[in-house]
């Protein structure tokens, strides 16, 4: 999973959106472990992931995204 290209790219987006260059992102990183991931930056995060992968999430996907692993699986679901 560490060499998954989708996951690698989401790590870069995380660092950019949450403005932390030395951010340690794992699949189970969530709102508690990443400081700055709140309900406000959540929308910016989802927007930049959508632009990067050219996908469109629906409302149920957005409500279901609790950590980075959920985001990866949501992107995979929409790309396939």
């Amino acid at each position: 999973m560490q060499h998954d290209p989708i996951f690698e790219r989401i790590i870069l987006i995380c660092k950019e959106v949450f403005k932390q260059d030395d951010l340690l992102v794992t699949e189970s990183s969530d709102k508690n472990s990443i400081s700055g991931w709140d309900s406000i930056s959540n929308l910016f995060f989802i927007d930049s992931v959508e632009k990067a992968f050219q996908v469109k999430f629906d409302l149920d996907d957005i409500m279901g995204i609790q950590n980075v692993g959920d985001m990866v699986s949501a992107v995979k679901k929409h790309q396939s």
């Binding site: 406000i40 930056s41 929308l43 910016f44 927007d47 959508e50 632009k51 409302l59 957005i62």
Partner: peptide, 25 residues
């Protein structure tokens, strides 16, 4: 946008981003 405080100021502003604006139902 989300506004908060005394006096209220903008905490988050989505008004310039069309891709987020169209998500509001």
């Amino acid at each position: 946008c989300v506004i908060s405080g005394n006096p209220a100021s903008i905490v988050a502003d989505y008004s310039g981003i069309e891709s987020i604006k169209e998500k509001f139902i």
